[in-house]
Design a protein around this nucleic acid. Structure first.
Length: 259
DNA sequence: ATGGTGGACCTTCCA
């Protein structure tokens, strides 16, 4: 199965690029983040015409996550089954696709260390870990894909000195991310490229950062070991960050061989 | 020059 994640930064603005990307790359499953659409505005029929079932969890102006699948899409769910309050934002959607429990996740940005939104981010990641403990088994086929807004190591940003006092690289954020992994998932991209630095998934629109290769690796495909052992091909499609009206994120994709 | 870009929106928030 070919599975991908892409923060599209407004599906309205990105729909032509998403359609052409689906046709050329032919993923079986695509997790999208930042659709910025209400549910009744989600173009499910267009995706159906391309052969995909879909599940969208949106709120309108901000956030919004979706899962497209052409290998089945069952048991859709949103938010966390941890007994806590419903999330105020539309940031995570779940579905079972081809026997794999899949999540499309858009972790809060955090804005700045110490900000209310930063604490919301840390709590959000803790809730994700709690949800996995309570609703999934680490020896099942589980994948969490999305924009985590965390760079796990210094080499996952172009210049750690540029992030003094900034979010995405602080100890608490990295610890919270590690806690999700430690439940029992592997960062497929890092496993594929253990020694390569300077490989990113996001480049700020500002200051021509893409062309200066000043990016961040903040989008991930996390998979339990049963799946990770069958990952054959894990890449960032940098071409999708080029050309007319690109998202500021590139798609990340992986091929998982049949068991 | 203390900026830059892009997307949502109602004049400013968000990334």
């Amino acid at each position: 199965m070919r599975i991908a994640t892409w923060n599209v930064n407004s599906l309205n603005a990105r729909m032509p690029r998403v359609e052409s990307w689906l046709e050329s790359v032919q993923p079986d499953v695509l997790c999208m983040q930042e659709t910025k659409l209400a549910n009744d505005a989600f173009p499910a029929l267009t995706f159906q015409g391309l052969g995909y079932e879909s599940f969208h969890h949106g709120q309108g102006q901000w956030n919004g996550v979706a899962i497209l699948s052409r290998i089945g899409l069952d048991d859709p769910a949103v938010d966390f089954a941890d007994g806590g309050d419903a999330d105020t934002d539309a940031r995570i959607a779940w579905a079972t696709c081809g026997g794999v429990r899949v999540a499309s996740a858009y972790i809060p940005n955090g804005r700045e260390p110490g900000h209310d939104h930063y604490h919301y981010k840390l709590e959000w990641l803790a809730r994700l870990r709690a949800h996995l403990e309570q609703s999934c088994r680490a020896d099942d086929d589980v994948m969490v894909l999305g924009d985590f807004n965390v760079a796990p190591e210094d080499r996952d940003v172009w210049d750690i000195a540029a992030f003094e006092g900034a979010t995405h690289v602080t100890g608490p954020e990295r610890d919270a991310f590690t806690r999700v992994l430690d439940w029992g998932m592997v960062d497929l991209f890092r496993r594929q490229y253990p020694d390569n630095d300077g490989l990113f998934t996001f480049w700020d629109y500002q200051a021509g950062r893409f062309h200066k290769r000043q990016g961040m690796r903040i989008d991930f495909i996390l998979a339990t070991e049963s799946l990770a052992g069958r990952a054959e091909f894990v890449i960032v499609d940098r071409n999708a960050r080029k050309g007319e009206k690109p998202s500021d994120h590139a798609p990340l994709l992986a091929d998982i061989a049949a068991a």
